[in-house]
Design a protein around this nucleic acid. Structure first.
Length: 236
DNA sequence: CTCCCGATAT
DNA sequence: ATATCAGGAG
């Protein structure tokens, strides 16, 4: 005498979490298509004018809003023009110059060391491939993918920042507990030609709608395709 | 896993 | 007071 199985109106959505890679791909591409309509510009939010500036800005963006990074880099890039300028400064002084971005001691070390390596090993030129970029101090796959995508228009990986990590999981595309796992899942699900677009558009969606604490599911046009994995209190 | 860390929203 | 922000290293 079991209880009657109650019909779940969200069966289709719940099933998205267990779908095959092929189905996940179809779903992901539909979501991306919609996200492109929502954020047709999808430009890089970090103000920069070349590879070095974007590299530095992206290192600074760890656990910090892009808005504050831009405030800091506006002055920073007037003072430091080349990789050599960053290698000459003391860590104490560079730390002061980037202080509002947080983690300023670590970031100052990363930036100075990375610039030194660029001078010593890469003839002053920012590398244009994943293998070399991630050798730079303070540069992981996320930072490297940002530079590769924005500056060189190339995707050797998928940018998995806090937004992409959170949203990809909410959408049921990955259950990975680290950005690395989520990136591998996304690389399997999405064709390479969409890797850059995925992060570009989902990050804007993460900022404006699919917020970490209080996602505006009621205003979300991706809502019908979203199983909302891990969303605690979707407000109406 | 912990640590690095200021600024802002809730 | 606590959570979060275009993470990475040890």
């Amino acid at each position: 005498m079991r209880l009657l199985k109650k019909e779940n109106p969200n069966t289709r959505i719940n099933n998205l979490v267990k779908k095959s890679r092929k189905d996940k791909r179809k779903n992901a591409l539909e979501i991306l298509e919609e996200a492109k309509k929502l954020y047709p510009w999808a430009e890089c939010a970090l103000v920069h004018k070349d590879a070095l500036q974007l590299l530095v800005a992206t290192i600074l963006s760890a656990q910090c809003t892009d808005e504050r990074v831009n405030k800091v880099t506006k002055k920073l890039f007037k003072k430091y023009k080349t990789v050599n300028d960053f290698t000459k400064v003391t860590l104490k002084e560079l730390g002061k110059d980037i202080r509002p971005t947080g983690y300023y001691n670590s970031k100052a070390r990363y930036i100075k060391s990375a610039c030194k390596m660029i001078v010593d090993k890469y003839e002053g030129i920012v590398p244009n491939n994943m293998e070399e970029l991630v050798k730079l101090p303070g540069v992981g796959r996320k930072t490297a993918s940002v530079v590769l995508g924005v500056i060189f228009g190339k995707a050797e990986g998928v940018v998995v920042d806090t937004h992409v990590f959170r949203i990809s999981k909410r959408l049921g595309l990955s259950k990975g507990k680290s950005p690395g796992i989520v990136e591998r899942d996304l690389m399997k699900i999405l064709p390479n030609e969409y890797w850059i677009d995925w992060a570009d558009h989902l990050i804007w969606h993460g900022r404006r709608v699919c917020d970490a604490r209080k996602p505006l599911c009621g205003e979300c046009t991706l809502e019908m395709r979203c199983p909302k994995v891990g969303v605690k209190t979707p407000p109406r």
